[in-house]
Simulated assay, not measured.
Amino acid sequence: MARRGATGLSGVLVIDKPAGCTSHDVVARLRKATGEKRIGHAGTLDPMATGVLIVLVGSATRLARYLSVDRKSYLAHIEFGTATDTLDADGDVVSSSPVPPSVLDALEAERILATFLGPQTQIPPAFSAIKRQGVPAYRLARDGADVTMEPREIEVYEAALSAIDPSGLTWQVRFSVSKGTYIRSLARDIGAVAGTDAHLSALRRTHAGTLGLEHAVTLEDACAAASDGRLPSLFVDPLPALGFPHTTGDPASVRTGRALPAPAGLAPGTGDRVSIVVDGRLGAVYRLSGSSLVPETVFVPEVAR
């Protein structure tokens, strides 16, 4: 008997998330359009943000652990002179301060941005989904609670100035950062170094790992394709996104989770992951253990490529 809410769809979508909706809203729209209940995402975007949102459909939801990638890239707009409670344009202004003329100097902007490169600790926003005693911090903050956020280790790989808008007192900056980095917090901290208040006025994610805007489709196009039965044509190949070595496997063995002999050229070891292709689709992720491959995650049905 088919499981309720299962459609046989299994694949990876890259959605260009529109502003004004949550990542969960995107998932809900696609569940309704497809009739498939097993849909999730890898890497949340704030409602204000747009851009790359990796959506996993059907058995591909089991890819979430692998596709919550360590490196993400953004185009951010930082507005100086005001701070908000959420650290972005969706929040209420909580303070204002004069903007030094040096903020509009490109050389000074580049100097400040350079100080944010590399490993560092960051204090996340109080208005975030990070849980405090089992409750999302944003709920506590909305209720007026004094929320103390613990610093976390992050890394900024790139912080490059793209443009300065003097009339809007705004920088446009390209960021490439590690998983768990809040661009809103970077905007706040950049303002402090510049000697004024600041908040994130716009944000667009351009890449999540190897998946970028060039792979993305709009939510409207994805829902239309789902209604017309064309959604599989929009799925992206998961193998490059995973970045693991890949090999083919005997369908019966992979589908029943049996160990496989390691192919020539793969160095023996423990913990090394390998994508297994079955009948042209992603059938499983195995781990290299000695001279064998042992199953870690098996996809039923296999994930479209």
Rank of each mutant, 00 (worst) to 15 (best):
A267H: 00
L293H: 06
Q172M: 13
P238C: 09
V254A: 13
G191T: 08
P119N: 02
R230F: 00
V298L: 14
D88K: 08
T256L: 13
V278M: 04
E79R: 15
S178F: 10
G81K: 10
A19M: 02
E79K: 15
T34G: 09
A76R: 14
G229N: 05
A222I: 04
L203E: 07
I54G: 01
F299R: 14
V300T: 15
L213Q: 08
K32H: 14
T210C: 03
A163V: 10
P101R: 14
E158V: 15
C223Y: 02
L200Y: 06
K32E: 14
A252E: 15
H215S: 15
P301I: 12
A202T: 06
D279R: 08
P301M: 10
Y66R: 10
A19D: 12
A216V: 12
I78A: 10
H215M: 11
R281N: 06
P251D: 05
L169Y: 12
A267G: 01
G195R: 07
R287D: 08
L107N: 14
H207G: 00
A202P: 04
G134T: 12
S233Q: 15
A192P: 00
R255C: 07
L67F: 07
G212R: 02
P301W: 09
E214D: 15
D272F: 04
E155F: 00
T181C: 04
D146V: 07
A109P: 07
V285Q: 09
I78V: 15
T170V: 14
T86H: 05
M1N: 14
I15Q: 01
H41I: 03
L107M: 12
P47A: 07
C21P: 00
Y138D: 08
G265C: 09
T61R: 08
D90V: 01
L45Q: 09
L242R: 04
T86K: 09
D143S: 15
L104D: 06
E110N: 03
I39M: 01
T50I: 01
A159Y: 07
P100H: 08
F235A: 07
D105H: 10
P245I: 09
L231Q: 02
T34W: 02
L56C: 11
P301G: 09
